[in-house]
Design a protein around this nucleic acid. Sequence first.
RNA 1: GGAGGGGUGGGUGAGCGGCUAAUACCACCAGACUGUAAAUCUGGCGCCCGGAAGGGCUUCGUAGGUUCGAAUCCUACCCCCUCCA
Length: 423
Amino acid sequence: MSGNAMDPRTLHGITKRGVSDIIVEEEFVRLLGEGKPLRLKMGFDPSRPDLHLGHAVGLRKLRQLQELGHQVILIVGDWTAQIGDPSGQSATRQMLTAEEVRANAETYMQQLFKLVDRDRTQTVWQSEWFGNFSLANVIDLTRRFTVAQFLARDDFAKRFRAQQPIAITELLYPLLQAYDSVAIESDVEFGGSDQRFNLLVGRDLQAMMGQRQQQCFIMPLLVGTDGVQKMSKSLDNYIGVFEAPNDVYGKVMSIPDGLIFDYFELLTDAPDEEIAEMRATLESDGVNPMELKKRLARDLVAQLHDPEAARRAESRFEGTYQRGEAPEEAQPIPLAAWVDRLREERGEAPAGSDPAAIVLPIVPIIVGEGLAASASEAKRLLQQGAVEVDGERLTSQTALLREGSLVRVGRRRFARFVGPAGQ
RNA sequence: GGAGGGGUGGGUGAGCGGCUAAUACCACCAGACUGUAAAUCUGGCGCCCGGAAGGGCUUCGUAGGUUCGAAUCCUACCCCCUCCA
């Protein structure tokens, strides 16, 4: 019996929108229909505590299911973190101390609960089962799969073909992840399309160990702000869940147009019909894509923060970037402290006719305040006309500064001098 | 255990005694154009001193050596890959 049939619209939203594949979909739908709380498995790599929108795709799915009464089991991967997910190209990882893991877990959860429901989330640690694992257990695990099976996995195959090293421990990674499914008796495991193999191993292993097989819920990978590669922290094309409203807003505005609808589909609740409508309007040149991005940016900031923050971020964006006004918030630079410091270090005693203003070398200040990585870079930027003071492009290495002077380096770094010149 | 190939700047990858801070491509940064989009064009892309011209220092797996001079030659060591066993 199909139980209390789900609202078809809700069901459609769960199984169709932003989904790459569900293995096995009919099974999954049937389980949902049974109305019993399902155990939704999600892993967390404690060496990477920061979440970005790429993670949000899956987390939003979990949230939807939580709203239907299902339970998220969050696994802190304190063992797999030591191996490092071979999905990346990175080599062997550094071991983390228990302290670091705990600290990272805290950061992680702080970000996590922006997107999933804390009350329907249970946290367990891999060490709860792997802590007592013996060599016999490991052998038992490894014996169940073959090298050929693992080499079938795309990234292993690629590396093997390219004659790149694959550590034997890396082969262990999918096994441990799979065993997690057994340990927690997972009903459904979620992952991006690069996780397909790992999810399927879990499914297989459960069957081998006499459990009901988990369903694998596979989602498309979110493309990062560069418009090419999947969003990831190491590629620096990410929008972090932890980022300030202005940063989230700005980063969303900088994504390539081609990504707009992917983002709407994967990251917002905007109804399918509305998305289709936006698409149509855009194709008929009825709207500047920028306007759609603004809506997207507002939506995302509101999700990660709140609607008020979204409004503020938008007006800041419009002011600073679209109308070229000075941003109201900018990194403060203590003017008097720099005057003293420069005088001490190089005996500069610049004088001016205006007692409130002072001429100072700008390069050490830019570097010292972290607006450029080195003096060489600062000079380069200066030469390229990338440094402005109070709206004037700086052509020399000295600048006339006063309290309230605004320095802009490149397109997005702003700082403002505070305090008196302290003559 | 044996044989061979290889380790160069964020990535790919040239160079194989001086013309090499090191070709090219990608990524990245800045400027122009814009919608903080894309594409395009221009410039840049080790560090330090200098307003500049220019100068200095440190880089080509690690440590030594040969040479007026080494990423390039020699020695030892470390690491990776392939094939054979």
